[in-house]
Design a protein around this nucleic acid. Sequence first.
DNA 1: ATAGGGTTAG
Length: 509
Amino acid sequence: MIRAFSISQTPCEGFRLFRALRRNSFLPANPLSSSFALKCCIKSGDLLGGLQIHGKIFSDGFLSDSLLMTTLMDLYSTCENSTDACKVFDEIPQRDTVSWNVLISCYLRNKRTRDVLVLFDKMKNDVDGCVKPDNVTCLLALQACANLGALDFGKQVHNFIDDNGLSGALNLSNTLVSMYSRCGSMDKAYEVFNRMRERNVISWTAMISGLAMNGFGKEAIEAFNEMLKFGISPEEQTLTGLLSACSHSGLVDEGMMFFDRMRSGEFKIKPNLHHYGCIVDLLGRARLLDKAYSLIESMEMKPDSTIWRTLLGACRVHGNVELGERVISHLIELKAEEAGDYVLLLNTYSSVGKWEKVTELRSLMKDKRIQTKPGCSAIELQGTVHEFIVDDVSHPRKEEIYKMLAEINQQLKIAGYVAEITSELHNLDSEEEKGYALRYHSEKLAIAFGILVTPPGTTIRVTKNLRTCVDCHNFAKFVSDVYDRVVIVRDRSRFHHFKGGSCSCNDFW
DNA sequence: ATAGGGTTAG
């Protein structure tokens, strides 16, 4: 009877019904109805209702019902309470693969990405007895690897998939393509993609977005055209990937052409905010700032903060102060301005030498108590992730690292590297001091560590939480040439492949 | 009958 209601009632109504029935004792205690009510709470994000049901489950004596406990974990997981989800997990009498998977998905959802990898290892080594990772576990683990940029671990999961007869599933292959792309390994992404027996629009989208993210615009366009040849229609995300590929690689004409084809209705998809964002970025990079501005004004939907932020980034690159100020006023109007926005405007002022404006804005930021986020870079070595923050002195091998960095700086100087002072945001007085502070940006520390501990010729892979600055970008270019290393840096939003003194991206001219 | 599927402009 209750199940019939689940079809016609909205989640909230379903829960109210459950409560009413319980209050009037029409409903005998039964784990199935509790499970249904829990699901209602999960759907509607009703933590309080869920807690009440947890209490009922306790008083009804159903705490030993493993299935019910698993649903309960999912409640805490959706309500961003991984601690309580974990507590419930510990109390489940018979944990099966699904209970493990729910916990893993909880950790993934709640940004406890490292714990996902720990749990995957535990399952693989059968710590709990009779529990083995299945296709869902692998899928979740791969997503965690993609988020972390943990390529080595991702490869291990890939091996596990192959060794345990799980390969061949379309969703796993799609996730593998995405994971390898998001770890900056396009060779491996291609390999998986090429071996796939069947490919759906998701596979193509994963490949196109991966190429876009890694700065391979031409290849992304080729993949898109090939997809059309196979008779597969693009989705919104496919076109987002395609347009972002064009903007990242400076393919202005191609990007505009695809955008026009889109607007003409060829793909039966109307441009959304993401598509507009790509085109604003494309025009902005090409110095067509006014065109970008009027495109934003012409949009049929309200521009969000990201759209404005994209234009602000272009103002910074081209030193357009007037437009930059206009853009930040839009962000303030939206009440969406962030520390990074002020930093961009600050950079715009300093790039054109408007020092009095710089001082003014700095004191404004101080008044508004705007805190900038510290940069953090990570490098994965033999499965261990080493993290560095600006001026980091916490690493056990810090002395060697700083010595290495000093040596690298000396070598680069000989090759013609000059520190880019406008990148430095701290309030430093002399130019000399500025150059000094720049030396300890987190990605430089991570790169120095990579050179220190890996044999010559090894690819250095670094992941960073913010966008890389002009100076570190330059630094990496020189390192790739002078030390003959491929350096792959994952930014907040994309990859930079440095090789022989140049970068695959189109970010800095 | 408890997990997830590719999260997408910067």
